[in-house]
Computed example of a mutant assay.
Amino acid sequence: MPAFDIQTARFNMIEQQIRPWNVLDSGVLDLLASVRRDEFVPPEHKALAYADLEIPLPGGQYMLTPRVEARLLQDAAVQKTDSVLEIGTGSGFLTALLARRAARVLSLELSPELVAFAKSNLQKAGITNVDVRQGDGSQGAAAQGPFDVIVLGGSVADVPHKLLDQLKIGGRLAAIVGDDPIMRATIITRTSATDFRTSQPWDCDAPRLQNFAQVSRFTF
């Protein structure tokens, strides 16, 4: 794809997909204009890098759409001093955005193939404050916590308390919670050792993260 086409596609992504979704944080918009999404997608899908699509990844996984990535990033309110835990590295693109906003990012990914893919992408992008590890993100990383921010890079039926326990007081967890066809972006803020505040500012749909428990549904 010629550089001009990439620039045009990226501009259109920001102006036609992301701004209309109430992503107005100038820092987030600047990041999306500078971090090349086409360098984080599988080579066969480069032409779709800036489209409003969930791009397929190895192992049956998918990248979130650009507007969902951008809105999660904005609503997580990542600060330069923050320690971030990401669950589900995928291609490493959201990881890269988080790393540019935070002090450090630990990212957990189940698939060894995606771990290698994301590490390669992040290295090529010159991002060094990220530790990508193969691991079960549903368990979190208590030994490396607590964290200022936890971001789930896919949807879950419910947020495990085990992850909430790994938030610092004042920390935020950003996730997409629910079941098809109703899922909601969920921002949970830890307000004290025992209390949490939850908001669900927007609806969306997103691929499932693996190894998270499904909510039991009983019928009588």
Rank of each mutant, 00 (worst) to 15 (best):
D5F: 15
I6G: 12
F11I: 11
M13Y: 06
I14T: 08
E15P: 06
W21E: 15
W21V: 10
S26K: 15
V28M: 12
L32I: 05
A33G: 13
P42K: 08
P43N: 12
K46A: 09
A51C: 09
A51E: 10
P56N: 09
L57H: 06
R71G: 09
D75K: 12
A77L: 13
A77S: 14
V78Q: 07
Q79A: 15
D82S: 11
S83I: 08
V84Y: 00
V84R: 05
L85H: 01
G90W: 04
G92W: 00
L94M: 09
A99F: 02
V105S: 00
S107A: 05
L108A: 09
A118R: 01
Q123M: 13
K124R: 14
A125T: 05
G126N: 10
D131M: 14
R133L: 07
G135L: 04
Q139A: 08
Q139T: 11
A142Y: 09
A142I: 06
I150G: 03
G153D: 01
S155P: 01
P160M: 03
K162A: 14
D165E: 12
I169G: 06
G170I: 04
R172F: 10
V177Q: 06
D179A: 15
I182P: 14
T189M: 08
R190W: 07
T191R: 09
S192Q: 06
D195T: 15
P201A: 04
D205W: 14
Q210D: 03
A213P: 13
A213R: 11
R217C: 10
